[in-house]
Design a binder for these strands. Structure first.
Length: 301
DNA sequence: TCGCAGGTAGAAC
DNA sequence: GTTCTACCTGCG
């Protein structure tokens, strides 16, 4: 099926949003296994100009694709909004076609976001891919993200695996979280998985107000304000979230506060107040604008 | 070899 | 309430 949609698919998929690692790329086609109606399907999507060539015709699959790449969001309206403000007017030029890359599986987004904290894009995406390979169900030659009850039983490290499994040699332990390069986040990930298995229904988050969802998700181990906002934005489509890290702080400080040092929590409050329902998109565009325009290397000094 | 970067938890202020 | 420090790991 051909879908008309202004998007930069490559930029969107590779922009480091914590919903999931980038999709597989073969030739010009991005692919991944996606759950539709509880069943895995292989999605293949290729961009040519203003059109997306999608391998499936099924109505539910198409609507899932539209959701994941946020295709129903009116980018040109957002660009008019950016262009009308002196601080933001350059941004649409530098990241044209960048859209939200939303989670197929909110639980994957929670674990990816916990993994991304105090980490690099390269490292967290590698860790999440390894978690899929070790604990996820295979569909064709893709691995799904494991369910919370499976990850809740994962070993933390070599030592625990050696003690609790029947492996005879500690050197050959490799089915544990630390082995995926997640470092000290391993216990957070496992406790979060236990929480979503035993106590908390992630789907309830979709029904909540932003404030209620934020307070709820903050209770999850390894989730602070930045990670909570990433989960709400990329995992649950709360567009009013303004995930604020040191980079967003530097950029906001440069653009709005004459370079003055302000706390990350104040930056979050400012972003939500100033940008409202556009906050999530503004944050996404700010980060990539800073990367691509050279502002980031300037602010580093 | 070692210093650096980056959010959270938990303790200290 | 805000601020400090330890936490893993890969990179330069």
């Amino acid at each position: 099926m051909i879908i008309k949609a202004p998007i930069n698919l490559d930029l969107t998929i590779n922009s480091g949003q914590t919903s999931q690692p980038p999709w597989r790329l073969n030739e010009d086609t991005f692919s991944n296994a996606v759950t539709v109606d509880g069943k895995p399907l292989v999605f293949k999507v290729k961009q040519s100009g203003e059109y997306l060539d999608f391998n499936l015709n099924d109505e539910k699959a198409v609507s899932k694709l539209r959701y994941i790449f946020d295709l129903d969001y009116d980018l040109s309206k957002f660009y008019r909004y950016l262009d009308n403000q002196p601080e933001l007017e350059d941004m649409s030029r530098f990241c044209n076609g960048l859209r939200l890359f939303l989670a197929d599986d909110p639980f994957e987004c929670v674990i990816s976001s916990i993994c991304s904290a105090n980490n690099s894009i390269k490292r967290w995406t590698k860790s999440i891919s390894l978690i899929k390979q070790k604990w996820g169900k295979q569909h064709m030659d893709y691995c799904m993200f494991p369910q919370s009850n499976v990850l809740a039983k994962a070993y933390l490290d070599d030592e625990e695996e050696f003690n609790l499994s029947d492996i005879k040699d500690i050197e050959s332990c490799e089915n544990n979280l630390k082995n995926c390069g997640v470092g000290y986040r391993a216990p957070y990930m496992r406790r979060a998985s236990e929480l979503f298995t035993l106590e908390m229904d992630l789907l309830e988050i979709f029904k909540m107000s932003y404030d209620e969802a934020f307070e709820t998700i903050l209770e999850v181990p390894g989730v602070g304000p930045k990670v909570a906002d990433c989960i709400l934005l990329y995992g649950f489509n709360f567009r009013e979230a303004f995930p604020s890290d040191v980079w967003i702080k530097r950029i906001v400080s440069h653009l709005y506060f004459d370079g003055k040092d302000i706390s990350v929590s104040k930056v979050r409050e400012f972003g939500m107040e100033e940008f409202g329902k556009n906050a999530g998109y503004v944050q996404l565009y700010m980060f990539h604008y800073a990367r691509m325009s050279g502002l980031m290397s300037k602010l580093k000094k």
